[in-house]
Amino acid sequence: MARLAGETETLLSIQESVLSCADFSALERDVLAPAADYLGAATSCFIQFWVNPTGEIRFGRTAAHNVPERAHQGYLTHHFRGDPAINAASRNFGTMPYVFCTSEVSDYSELTNSPFYNDFFRPNCIHHVMVMTQRPQSRDGDMLIFGFHRPRSDRPFSDTEKHRLKRLASALGCSARTLCLQDDFAMSERAIAEYGAAYPAHGLVFLDDHMRVLYGNRTGLAHLALQDVGGRVRLEALSRACQRALRTSDTADAVSVDISRSSGIVASVRARSDHEGRLVFVVHTNRRNDEAVFETRCREYQLSPREVDITRALAAGLSNTEIAGRLFISVRTVENHLRSIYAKAGVNRRTQLLSRLNDFE
């Protein structure tokens, strides 16, 4: 009984440390180190990765404990291709934690004679490997992996340690996912701030199907001014535009609307669905003179309607991949359109293009 109580107390202490981790800079100290100590591992690592439809693996956030940085980077650049744990994790399509030892998913007599073992495992004193992998329920479809390692001179991981890792799996997965989301949010905030600094006159607002603001940058919220006198009129004008956008046959087309004639505020509205099928209205706002200059420049450069859509998406700070997703075309098609747009405008890159399109002189 005393032993069980001690085991439970230790587990709770480790879980508290894991769940208290505040950011990725502390992941090695607050998560990997105590978990490795609890499981009797000499080294440990965390890896976030995605597998695209062609089977190519792309890595996200990673961290390592007691693994040399050079070795860790070598694994991420090329050694991972021979790792049976990565292959086993890629085949796990469930959202529940999956705990296994490498010896259970590979022939170790073959593995110990493989280039992967001799080029990576052996130089880094790794032989026994225990893994916890989880595919969170997210639109990104990313995979989270925690790996724990022992040298050949040590004993293999036992069923007891696999059971311990399973008990710890929920805390590990929750902590890693929270850190990933925090990092994504911080990155989005930086991108939004950069966009706002580069294009202070452009507003961006997301509305749900009840006309509630899901997100708005400072300029967009100022243009809508829904809490001010006249906010009701602006919202009614937006609502009508949203309904027209919802009915339009070509979802790539935007519906334009004057939302405040007295202030000269115009908006373009598109209806979109998020990854769960929920309706979202994307609203770009601008002052009428700014919009007039933009449209005049587009006509001067003889941009096609599709090229205008792509140029607006560029002004919204979207990447080529995001533009392709928004307009339901391929990235290659976006790139082909951009080459045509650059040639017509006489520029070499997007910053030059946007500068010319918004030039008042």
Rank of each mutant, 00 (worst) to 15 (best):
P136N: 03
V99S: 02
F93K: 08
F49E: 04
N113A: 14
P53N: 09
T43F: 02
H79F: 15
S103G: 06
S106F: 11
T112C: 14
I47G: 00
S138D: 15
I57L: 14
N66K: 12
Y75M: 10
P53G: 08
C125Q: 13
N113Y: 04
R122H: 11
L111T: 10
N113M: 09
I126T: 02
A71H: 06
A63V: 01
A42S: 14
F93N: 11
Y117F: 15
F116V: 06
N92E: 13
G141L: 02
L111G: 05
H72T: 07
V131W: 00
V129F: 01
G82M: 10
H65K: 04
N118G: 04
R70W: 04
T77E: 13
V105W: 06
I86P: 00
D119R: 10
M130A: 01
V105S: 08
R91G: 07
H78Q: 09
S90H: 03
H79R: 10
A63L: 02
A42D: 15
R139A: 15
A71S: 15
H78F: 10
S103W: 00
N92P: 02
H79G: 03
N118H: 10
R58S: 15
L144Y: 04
A63S: 15
V131Y: 01
I57G: 03
M130R: 00
E69S: 12
A42C: 09
P97T: 01
I57V: 15
S106C: 12
N52A: 12
V67G: 04
L144A: 02
G74S: 08
R122E: 15
Y98T: 01
R61D: 08
C101L: 07
T77I: 09
V99N: 01
E56H: 09
E56V: 12
P115T: 07
Q137I: 09
V129M: 01
Y98W: 12
H65S: 11
S106E: 11
M132T: 03
D142S: 11
G94I: 04
L111R: 06
T43I: 03
H128C: 09
W50I: 09
